[in-house]
Write a protein that binds this DNA or RNA. Structure first.
Lengths: 338, 338
DNA sequence: TTGTATGCGTTATCAT
DNA sequence: ATGATAACGCATACAA
């Protein structure tokens, strides 16, 4: 009972027909008699034949595989989006190769070459340091960007949350709870999403006639071997030690927000009584930290669905009129920290 | 400048040599003159040629691809292990197809067929409902199980944390802090890891001459649309309402532990003063919840390294004498909840 | 050192 | 309705 690999050729021999006929039966195209169909199917069952997709891909110039580039799969937002994408695509008969780039440009290029060599039918790029555009990948490979601007803005599709709205809602929440002097904690300020969130913050201030002050912007850089939470906490404590005062914090993600909370509690102040805090992402920790964190929820399901839908449309060549920039609304999740 | 796909054949023509020679240059095997080498490499550079791995795989019967089966990639423990595995394998020239099975048996089978069709060189299976063994995958495909017993125990390698030790350490921690009546919250009791953790709990009790009581075992089942945390909280509250009393809780994972904490706090009791809690997994939330959660940390890096090392050895056919059952030590992370 | 020819497992074209 | 065969892109045994 040695389970050797069996090919279409052997199926043909065992069935007493040609490989062509077997292929037709398998793919159910072309004509063949009911009799041969039964016979062939029986042999396939008996031999546990599985079609060799490598050969099929080569012949068809279609791999039924799509690649996903993601900076860090252990980030809860990315993990959720990727998981959902993978699930949707699988239902459509596609397999997904998830590439964790670690925000490393070389690694990204290497991955792209690998994906190209595997003849991927499409590519989804999630977030990342700079505009996306690489010579490693064929220009005609269908491409969807999520949270990352493509170099070729006018022909490739960009899907992202309404980061501006998120920043606005977060800030408005703080203002509505009585904050007048709101710090904003920024991590990767070069990301377009960060810029948009900052803009939302600024415009919310403007709406309520609160002057924007440069000193309220706290940039944190995360050193090696340090978590975002620790870095944010350190940065805020440093700033406070220099005499900085504030009554609210909008952190560009939940990890940073937790760091801010820790800093505040460390100083003997209370959240939300003395200082209120809002994060971004609706990371699971936002629900379980203390106090529970008010945050902005991105609609990752919708993002994933829309990405897949658009990508598959590009692959199939149906619909050429898709919107090049699709913005997904976000919502405020109000919890104890405000 | 239309970037059409260029094959080895065209490289041959442009270089004025045969495809065989080009192939030899590319793979740097066989003999060829320095002159042709230069010429060919130049043409390759000019044309942006990339080797077609699909064709190569078909010819070589080796895809340089490995598959990973995982129940739920958004689980922090799985995400970490998978990420590390992927990173290691990538360095070794392998790409990884991550398959999220959702603990769904049909999906698992479908994935395995897909992977088989892609001629994967190896397979890593992480956790899962029942013993692993499927006819969909070729018996001779190198296989490593992590946290999941293989059907064929004596020939396939199983790598797992020392769940027994984890259960023991967790329970001992509670006892050493003065607990005498320790509840244990179990979720998927059919998992071998769960059984081992329970066993560790029982033996720790025995060591300190505390009688094991069946009523201390709380089984929770997670309904659709309900989180583990909510389910654990509900289960514990239910039990308490029936008059159940205890002074410590060992939850088989951190999400359950948080649920327990919430239940306890809801009743106006204090953690750790009135009741102490220990979790399992060292999930990020354990660090940021309130109070911070004492938990058991699995060494996911080591698990990943060991899995890759063993898998690659199986693929290369080197070393035939690997231990079939490899147990990775765990450590206690002591925090505020005890 | 280099070229020719074959085959990997499929699908598709063109006969019959 | 079915069969023979070419082609997909590559690596290699064998010739030259």
């Amino acid at each position: 009972m040695n389970q050797r690999k069996v090919s279409i050729k052997e199926i043909a021999e065992l069935s007493g027909v040609s490989v062509a006929t077997v292929s037709r039966v398998i793919n159910n195209n072309g004509r063949f008699s009911e009799e041969t169909r039964k016979k062939v199917l029986q042999v396939i069952k008996d031999t546990h034949y599985e079609t060799n997709n490598i050969a099929k891909s080569l012949r068809m110039k279609k791999s039924n595989t799509i690649g996903i580039l993601v900076p860090d799969i252990s980030n809860s937002f990315f993990a959720n989006v990727v998981q959902e994408i993978e699930s949707i695509l699988f239902k459509k008969g596609y397999s997904t190769i998830i590439c964790n780039t670690d925000r490393n440009e070389e690694k990204e290029e290497a991955y792209l070459r690998m994906l190209e060599g595997k003849m991927i039918d499409g590519l989804i790029v999630i977030s990342g340091v700079k505009e996306f555009g690489s010579t490693a990948i064929n220009k005609k490979t269908p491409l969807i960007c999520i949270d990352r601007k493509p170099k070729d803005t006018k022909s490739t599709i960009l899907i992202e949350s309404d980061h501006y709205q998120g920043g606005f809602l977060a800030t408005e929440e703080l203002i509505s709870k009585g904050c007048h002097n709101i710090a904003i904690i920024i991590h990767r300020d070069f990301l377009s999403s960060s810029k948009e969130r900052l803009l939302g913050y600024q415009n919310a201030l403007k709406k309520y006639q609160i002057p924007f002050k440069e000193e309220n912007v706290i940039h944190v850089t995360v050193e090696e071997k340090m978590s975002r939470t620790e870095a944010a906490k350190a940065a805020l404590l440093q700033k406070i030690s220099e005499g900085y005062q504030f009554d609210g914090v909008f952190a560009l993600n939940d990890r940073l927000a937790i760091g801010a909370i820790h800093a505040i509690l460390d100083l003997g102040k209370k959240v939300p009584e003395d200082i209120k805090v809002v994060g971004f992402d609706n990371d699971p920790i936002s629900k379980y930290c203390y106090p529970c964190l008010t945050t902005i929820r991105q609609d990752n399901m919708l993002i994933a669905e829309q990405a897949c839908e658009n990508l598959l449309a590009l692959i199939d060549g149906t619909r050429k009129d898709m919107k090049k920039h699709q913005v997904i609304p976000v919502t405020l999740v109000s919890r104890a920290s405000t």
